[in-house]
Design a protein around this nucleic acid. Structure first.
Lengths: 358, 358
DNA sequence: CTGTTAGCGCGTTCAA
DNA sequence: TTGAACGCGCTAACAG
């Protein structure tokens, strides 16, 4: 499996153009001291040979690659996809290219050692700066710019973009309790993640705020994924005294609740109010459209991207800790708690308003 | 912005351990001819210095990186996300790491030149082999393994994984016409993509098969995205003689149809049958669950991944052209066309069966 | 078992 | 305006 010089190198270009390597290099880097003819000649050859300078060799010398790296635990969960969406958008409007690095294993990675390894791997070579998403590690061995998104530890050592998970959750609770709900089920996220425990705190906080005692049976341990959420919702709905509302720790879990409710013959929102978290893109397409807490995930991605780019360029940051406030997006999945069983007529009909996510 | 030797190099390790550089290299690559003590000593130092070998330098020498590269037009459309899901899964079960490369611009990229540039960029340096998703380019200048997913040109020059788009679409049409529908609207995808025109062909084929004349007003030009699909569906539904069924070129577009139908007060499936394409993860969470054509996108990703890995290892492929047959997944978004307006009672109640996508 | 030597492809001096 | 020489961090061949 040895492949040597399978592609054109700067040497090939130099030979074909009848000039020296360094002249080609100069042309590549737009130095001004090259005669127009030589330059033109070289460009022709470059096109003919389909030459591209080697990222590896180039970065090894110049420490400059025009590439921003992203390290994520995975690229398939809705959260990561949304972050990516934002990063993607910010990259589009910049001169930088994007490399996403992942082991592909949701569970295996996420360890501090892995993260550190990756940061070193990319930053030591092919990346000008990087974004680490939901890191557990607190320190990375690199002095190239690092920006962190939603770190899993308290006070990040790097410029960070974070969401106000707890406040968002308690806002949602305030909404539900305001509608008269008192038995509110909760499906947690992956509790080993900071976001999940913060949302749980928000749930409890919301209960305390209106003096509802905590009922542990109303809390189900989820994992941010639909299958588990379906089970959780089934458990809640088959309780002797089932909740009239369920607050799911993310939208995917809320979709699981929809599924379980349909199975159980419970109508949303008449028989069961549902609130999600994230405001994922598809939330608006559910029937009824999902009321959820928007945490502007994709914004977090684009802000983080702009932060690293600034740092790479040597500019200063306005702030090292960028907090993004969550916001409740009210759509059609909740109704006021009706005392008389299906007293739906008393509430205004919900409009099928298209509320674009983010 | 010049940063020199910001991180530990192999030289630092060698100095700190009091050995030569090559000895360290041997330890790094698990060569057997190193004394246990030396090896242990070096490992200690490596940990202390938090050393990671530079990907750039390493790959430049050894042409071996243990990294598989993916080049995609973007990382935010549902199609790409699904492909990624499959790649992700296959990578998990391998020893390889994954790098995803994208310009982040859905529209800017997708040009043959860009693709060629990226392939050269990654393969010339940091990647052992790569997967190019929906390429328009037909040839890449590299002899490192390349596998192509759903190429936009006829006969790919590289091992490829492709979906049977046309057949899938005509199957869906057969289903709809079998239910008695004769006025069937169609929302296309981005017609510059091969998949989109193949699906359109399948639509027409399905019409021809049962002798329904083509009505151009029933074909709306979409772009695989929801907002456009909503407009298309609105147009179809406000036709003088509106369709009784709409076949959308992908699930995201089908979600747009749901939205437009809701606005127009049309119930799905009673008043309007809807079929999608892709079988995206969330299709099952829609209400009613979406009947769609599964093209096993994520399988395509994992198969492609396993193919490159084989090639990288120097193993032979069973086949160079892997066709994945589509399959209709019947859920709840279609009913037989009822002559007597809302003659719903004649059909069996749809079960809310959980059909896991893929 | 370990050190020395020679590049990989490229950018950057320094001379010419 | 251009070319020769050097070294980035690393691996592989060859000596010892």
């Amino acid at each position: 499996m040895r492949r040597r010089k399978s592609y054109a190198t700067i040497k090939d270009v130099a030979n074909a153009a009848g000039v020296s390597i360094s002249t080609v290099s100069r042309v590549l880097n737009n130095k001004d001291d090259v005669s127009p003819e030589t330059s033109a000649k070289i460009h022709t050859v470059i096109n003919e040979l389909n030459y591209t300078s080697s990222l590896a060799a180039r970065s090894m010398r110049s420490q400059r690659t025009n590439v921003i790296g992203v390290i994520m635990p995975d690229v398939v969960t809705s959260y990561c996809i949304e972050v990516l969406r934002g990063i993607n958008q910010a990259i589009t409007q910049s001169d930088y290219d994007l490399i996403i690095y992942t082991t592909g294993d949701i569970w295996r990675s996420g360890t501090a050692d892995q993260e550190r390894r990756y940061v070193a791997l990319l930053n030591g070579s092919i990346t000008d700066g990087m974004i680490v998403v939901t890191p557990v590690a607190t320190h990375f061995s690199t002095n190239a710019p690092v920006v962190v998104v939603d770190p899993n530890n308290g006070s990040p050592n790097y410029p960070a973009v974070i969401a106000t998970n707890q406040a968002g959750a308690s806002t949602a609770m305030a909404y539900l309790t305001g509608l008269g709900h008192r038995r509110i089920g909760f499906i947690t996220g992956r509790l080993e993640l900071a976001s999940a425990s913060h949302r749980l705190q928000g749930y409890k906080e919301g209960l305390v705020a209106v003096g509802i005692p905590l009922d542990e049976t109303l809390i189900q341990i989820g994992d941010y994924e639909a299958p588990r959420a379906i089970e959780c919702a089934r458990a809640l709905l088959s309780l002797e005294d089932p909740p009239t509302a369920i607050f799911a720790s993310n939208d995917i879990s809320a979709m699981g609740v929809y599924q379980a409710a349909r199975e159980a013959g419970r109508r949303i929102p008449q028989d069961l109010a549902v609130v999600g978290f994230d405001n994922v893109r598809d939330a608006v397409f559910l029937n009824p459209p999902l009321t959820t807490v928007d945490q502007f995930i994709s914004e977090m991605g684009s802000i983080a991207t702009n932060m690293v780019i600034k740092l790479v360029k040597g500019e200063a940051l306005e702030t090292d800790l960028y907090k993004i406030s969550t916001q409740l997006v009210v759509r059609g999945s909740c109704l006021p708690l009706a005392r008389g069983d299906n007293d739906v007529a008393t509430v205004p009909p919900r409009k099928s308003l298209y509320v674009p996510p983010a």
